[in-house]
Each structure stands twice: as C-alpha cells, then as structure tokens.
Design a protein around this nucleic acid. Structure first.
Lengths: 148, 148
DNA sequence: TTACAATATTGTAACCATTACAATTTAATA
DNA sequence: TATTAAATTGTAATGGTTACAATATTGTAA
C-alpha cells in the first residue's frame, strides 16, 4: 500500500473527508518525518499542486491536529513544526545544524504529587544541544586549527 | 534579604551589570513564578519604571537567557514565556484556564541509544491537559445541568 | 442528472510577537 | 573631566499566522 492510500485510510478512520490537500499533506508528513514547518510543507507540495495556498496548508494542519493525526512541535520558538509520527517520542534539536532527532521517550508522570488529580492529555519532551555529527565536525575543525 | 538584593547578587555572580531594568525584571520573575510573557513583564514593570520600553524587556530577557538566569518556555506556540526557576522541572499547561503548573521532573536520557554521542544541554518536559481545579468546575457544571 | 446545502479552498489583508537599527542615554575607567 | 563602551529607547520592519469574504468542490436527495 502506498503512502497516499495509507493517508487516505487514516483520514477516513477519523471521519475526515480525504480531500486532495489533506491526503497529500498527511502523506508527505508520513513519508518525510523531518518535522517540517508550515512553509516547508507549502513549498514541498506546491510543484505537484499549483493551486495550493498557504492558508490551505494552515487550515489542513488545523484539521489534522484536531483529530490528532498530527502533533505540534514547539521546540523552536521561532516557528511551529509538525509531526505525523505516532506514539510518544521525544525531540532533540541540534543548536548547530537545526536538525531535529526523534528518540524513545515515554515518561510517566501519573505518580507526580504536584499533578495529582490532573488530566494529562499530551506529553512533549524537548532536548537541545549538539548532535553527534556536529560535535565531530567541531572537533575536526579545532584539530586542524591547532595544526596550523 | 529582599528579592531585589537577591537579583542583584545573581547578576553580579554571572558578571552581568546589575542595571535597574535587569534587577527589577529578574526580581519580578523570582517573586512571580507564573511564567509571564514579555508583554506581561512589560505591563507589570511599567508603573514602577515609566521610561521602560518593550524593546528593553526583550533585550534584558536575551541577556538573562544568555547567562542562563532565565529559561524559555515554548509550551504555548502563540507566545514565549519566561521562567527564572532554577533546577530542572516540567511544565503543565491547562488548556482550560491557560495556567502553567510546575512539577518535579528530572528525566535522564543519557542512556538513550538514539542520542548516544550527543551533547545534551537543556531539557524541557511539557504536559498539557486539564488541571484539578478546572476538572472540578467542569464536573460541578455538568451536575448542575443534569439537575435542570 | 440536477439542485441544494454543507464543506473545503483560496487570496487578500490584517494581526501581533519579535527583531533590526540608529539615536540617545547611562555607566565605567582613566 | 574626557573618553569609551555598554545599555536603553523609539520607530519601523519582519515574518509567521489568522480573519474573512469570495469561490469552488463535494455529498445528498429528489
């Protein structure tokens, strides 16, 4: 089953009309788990969908958020990112290359005294730092500078 | 020691000039751990500091962030909030009343395979849901509606 | 199929938090 | 006091997001 069909079924399962935009946008998110911004989604879908408007991207994302097929990621305060990845997982933002890496995280705060009696609907774990690749590049550069 | 003096000492310890704005803003954050927005800080400080400008609030926050006396909270994608609370703790956002509650959280992801070799500098845990008080109000309202 | 109503999409303009920048003020040092 | 660096301010711009009205599309029923 290709990703378009998969997206179509996911939408139907949530009783959301599987319109062109919705299917394509969800399919893109499923096929490209890189947490794109709204603008990146717009730019990516535009070639295959020339009548697409930015507003429609936002409308579509709102609808997908509403039925929880998509999650918001606010790890970067500059712009919101979107993720169709299911299941709880954390996000690591590299301050050097701005890439976001997923990692396994399923924290349990039900026993937390401060939150006793609270209804917890959603959980996001955001880490920031420097990723492996950037660390290696930085080390390499420093050695070269020393050598000079 | 009052909170202004405490703020002054914290700034000196970080080698940041304890200017009027910085001392007052940090003191306000220490005394009001409610995670205000930049605009809320501006409105709160303005009466006691009529020449204050919005830009200065942002500049001051940037400086305090730089020396890590303040943390960013991006749990709400609409606007950034600021927190002078020290130590790792999580934030719970009530979707009903928009209040943010702190809770103890000190997750350890150093053993996480996906992040092996990564340098982790900062950690934020964001939960959303409905707080105790709002849950009780909702229940009360529902009972009253049933009674009618 | 056709007509109608509901829903979805689009373009434009507005909104608003944040930032850029240049001018002014304040503070530190000699 | 003079000099210089740092801090503060006001204005204008930036840019992601949203409001809204017009248009297009879809689903349903006759």
């Amino acid at each position: 089953m290709n990703v378009l069909e998969k997206a179509r079924r996911m939408l139907k399962a949530k009783a959301v009309r599987p319109t062109m935009i919705r299917v394509r946008l969800l399919a893109y998110l499923l096929a490209h788990p890189v947490h794109p911004t709204a603008d990146q989604l717009y730019q990516a879908l535009l070639p295959g969908f020339p009548t697409l408007s930015k507003t429609s991207v936002y409308n579509t994302l709102d609808k997908l958020l509403e039925v929880k097929l998509v999650r918001l990621i606010t790890i970067d305060e500059k712009e919101t990112r979107y993720d169709a990845g299911t299941g709880v997982h954390g996000h690591f933002l590299c301050k050097h290359c701005s890439d976001i890496t997923d990692f396994a995280a399923n924290p349990d705060y039900t026993g937390c005294t401060e939150l006793s009696g609270y209804q917890i609907d959603d959980c996001n774990v955001y880490l920031t730092g420097i990723c492996k690749v950037c660390l290696q590049n930085i080390n390499k550069t420093q050695k070269e500078e020393k050598a000079v």
